[in-house]
Amino acid sequence: MFAPDRVLIYTLLIVTSIYYLVPLYVMIITSLKDLDMIREGNIFIPTARPTLDAWIKAWSQACTGLNCTGLAPGFWNSVFITIPSVVVSIAVASISGYCLANWPFRVAEWCFTILLVGSFIPYQVFLYPLVIITREMGIYSTLYAVIFVHTVFGLPILTLLFRNYFASLPEELFKAARVDGAGFWRIFFQVMLPMSVPIFTVAVILQVTGIWNDFLFGVIYAGPTNYPMTVQLNNIVNSLQGVKEYNVEMAATILTGLVPLTIYFLSGKYFVRGIAAGAVKG
């Protein structure tokens, strides 16, 4: 029952788990303290008198420069960036994956190979050219530019995901539909899509967390009025005015991580499938 190697395995697993959990724990207990407790206390010991004041301040009153609007506008900007970006990137990638899996032609296959290699190129290489491209399209420094950029960088992994999934569906279904006279779009909407709910779920989770967590593209392409939550968090924490309010910083940090964390805890299995898709190919 208590063989020594089992004890060792569980000990190691539990000790490492603690290391992974400590930052979350510290974040939560710090956000529930007031400033006096932070100055006197120990970061690992929770307060006896928890308060949500720091959360309220982080959400609606914390300042960046002269703006004291809290994180709330950043939250809504992130929502308005994330939803269309997820929809557009998945639409483009699922159709591209469908072309590659079921209606392949040579140029598309070349492009797909370039895409797979290109997905490893550092973003820094594309930053300025994408400024030029979005400026030429007349969308630089708007929501549309960020949506476009997220579509571009979501394309490699998502196309791979969809191509492999569509290719794994039984070919007979596709052939039967063609014999019945269904064309490209009809097969896509009426045969493929109804069978693809799991892969769309994986793709949505992958994209929502990825886009919500983005910082760089938001800073460069969205324009100051559309700055996402990550950017606003960074600005709030970095605006040095008077006493540093670490409890407000930690509350703001949790608030920013809340959406991806919630998605992660609700959808663990799909999340793992999404991140594994790129490495362990079907």
């Binding site: 992974y20 930052p23 510290v26 967590n213 990550t230 991580g257």
Partner: peptide
């Protein structure tokens, strides 16, 4: 698995801010 993987769901900005505090 949930414990080891949850930080990966968080952004680098959040990661950086937590560790800056600790």
């Amino acid at each position: 698995r949930t414990i080891y993987l949850y930080p990966f769901a968080l952004s680098f900005i959040v990661t950086g801010k937590v560790w800056a505090w600790i």
